[in-house]
């Protein structure tokens, strides 16, 4: 199925969970369709066609 990962199109297998997309849990947060998904729910949150997934971390900033 097709999703948007950090603003770019990405094809993933049906049944893919948020967990499968997160490289490392440390200092990372995830939102799906504008709602934060807590780390404790990554493994149980399945993705659907057209979902917009944002994965963020800390970067330099003022």
């Amino acid at each position: 199925m097709n999703i948007h990962l950090n603003g770019r199109p990405r094809v993933v297998a049906d049944g893919t969970t948020v967990q499968a997309l997160v490289p490392s849990a440390r200092g990372v947060a995830v939102a799906v369709n504008g709602a934060v998904v807590p780390a404790s729910s990554w493994g149980s949150t399945g993705l659907s066609e057209d979902d917009a997934v944002e994965i963020v971390t800390a970067q330099q900033g003022g």
């Binding site: 990962l5 950090n6 603003g7 770019r8 490289p23 990372v28 947060a29 944002e54 994965i55 963020v56 971390t57 800390a58 970067q59 330099q60 900033g61 003022g62």
Partner: peptide
């Protein structure tokens, strides 16, 4: 100390 929050794809 402040930091920003950015997409991992745009983060070193």
């Amino acid at each position: 100390v402040t930091v920003s929050v950015r997409r991992t794809s745009d983060t070193e």
